[in-house]
Design a protein around this nucleic acid. Structure first.
Lengths: 264, 264
DNA sequence: TTTTAAAAGCGTTATTATAACACTTATTAA
DNA sequence: TTAATAAGTGTTATAATAACGCTTTTAAAA
């Protein structure tokens, strides 16, 4: 009981100094009252981390190393600190696991059921990330007991993490039908069959390769190289690169550049 | 200073009893430590409340009655309580202003810049609501100094509320192109010209009335009544009603019933 | 009573986007 | 030399979208 009380004092101290330091220009006692009477709550962040390789879409999960649910599979998460924004916190947490900075990371949804965390009331803001599966730090992954799972063979996840994953999957579909997601998930050079496999995985559907190529190429933001990927076929497939400048130019030009190889 | 300390104790007590009561089945001291070390933060909710009348889309704003920014225009907001979910809190706050329950209300985005509220670190989860402008409680509105503003003539708003409004506008466009929003924003009976004005306001564009009618009617979820609305023209326009059963049936039947009268 | 003004209502055609479909090519390994 | 495998390519039918102007109804004004 001593412990708990001690900790409580610390929190109180924290809150207090925050308030005093940031006292607003027109501050008076009424304002203070208004803010004071409300509950302070833990704010968590959880990251749904997508990767891709030839066998399909993957999710990066960690083995949770503290109670509750210790040892079970979980999304990478952490708690918001007073002095960082939500986006910064999500970045920090993603960096901690993958070693990557400047990753595509987007806020997904705030999960706020009262009992979603059995220990203490916690609101969690979920973010999803698209990363190039080759680029991240293997050592860090070992440290967190992290593993890539095929999107359709996920283990049981703790708390409301399954819901978070579902929400991230739909959001990824939405994004893929409005912007080119391939370029975050694929390495710099990739082949048409690879790009198609990616879209098929995202949309969970099969696409006609002739229609797919035509539509992708008609957007005129890919550059064909003269190298070939010979790992997966005897003939070999040409590598393409994404021309980001051209893409930005088209966007700025107001070209309705929709990266949607199929209707949804 | 006494006040602040007193209040701090109260919060501490709160946190403590919450923790003890909800101690998890496998709970031990390590778990407690893990949660204890993190910051507790104010979680606010702000509601972007859309309404519609013949002159276009409207937003319901209130005059803020406490510091900071007292007297300035603001979205309706409030703070999350420990014992309610985010959705419940948003409902409560919307009900407080409009008197309405079972309103269309959807989470929009979590706003989490460190300095977004100058008094104390606050994360705000924004929700947007679609309400029938006729149905809400005028008395409550007076109580909060609330007023409907045309979406393109908004006053200056406090904090990051302008960003919230922008986000809500795009989300409304998205939703309108996937589901029939008209039926939350319009009264039970409405005319084709009214429905068209609504979509034009949402998409901020002009639509061809012949194409609009054809596409809306081809979805076969509207019922034409034999009453006419004669307020706005000499000829008068027929009232239509939404057939919600038919709509649900089509959705369940897997009919890709997209309520999108134009491409975006 | 006739005319005018103002919004509602209605159909056709051209254009563009999407979907369906099958054979040839390049290469390695048998 | 040939067999097996994935890569690569074009055409046609169908469906969705966009463009377009005249007629109808009725209240109010002349």
């Amino acid at each position: 009981m001593d412990r708990v009380l001690y900790w409580s004092f610390q929190i109180a101290g924290h809150e207090d100094s925050g308030l005093v330091e940031k006292r607003y220009k027109n501050s008076h006692i009424f304002m203070k009252n208004h803010y004071e009477e409300h509950d302070r709550i833990l704010v968590a962040l959880d990251c749904i981390i997508f990767g891709f390789d030839r066998s399909g879409l993957k999710l990066l999960l960690i083995k949770r190393d503290f109670e509750p649910e210790k040892g079970n599979w979980s999304l990478m998460g952490g708690f918001l600190k007073r002095e960082e924004s939500l986006d910064e916190a999500a970045d920090r947490i993603l960096h901690k696991l993958t070693g990557l900075k400047n990753v595509y990371l987007e806020q997904l949804y705030g999960f706020g059921e009262v009992d979603r965390d059995p220990v203490e009331r916690t609101v969690s803001i979920a973010y999803y990330a698209l990363i190039n599966i080759q680029e991240h730090d293997k050592e860090l992954m070992d440290k967190y007991g992290a593993r890539w799972f095929p999107i359709n063979e996920l283990p049981d996840l703790i708390f409301d993490h399954p819901q978070m994953v579902e929400a991230a999957k739909s959001r990824l579909q939405y994004r893929a039908s409005h912007e080119p997601v391939g370029f975050e998930l694929l390495p710099e050079k990739f082949t048409m069959p690879e790009l198609q496999i990616l879209y098929e995985a995202i949309y969970e559907t099969e696409l006609d390769k002739r229609n797919f190529r035509r539509r992708i190429l008609s957007m005129d933001v890919l550059v064909k190289t003269d190298e070939k990927q010979k790992k997966y076929s005897k003939k070999g497939a040409y590598f393409y690169k994404f021309n980001e400048e051209k893409y930005r130019a088209k966007i700025n030009n107001g070209d309705n550049l929709v990266f949607k190889p199929i209707k949804l």
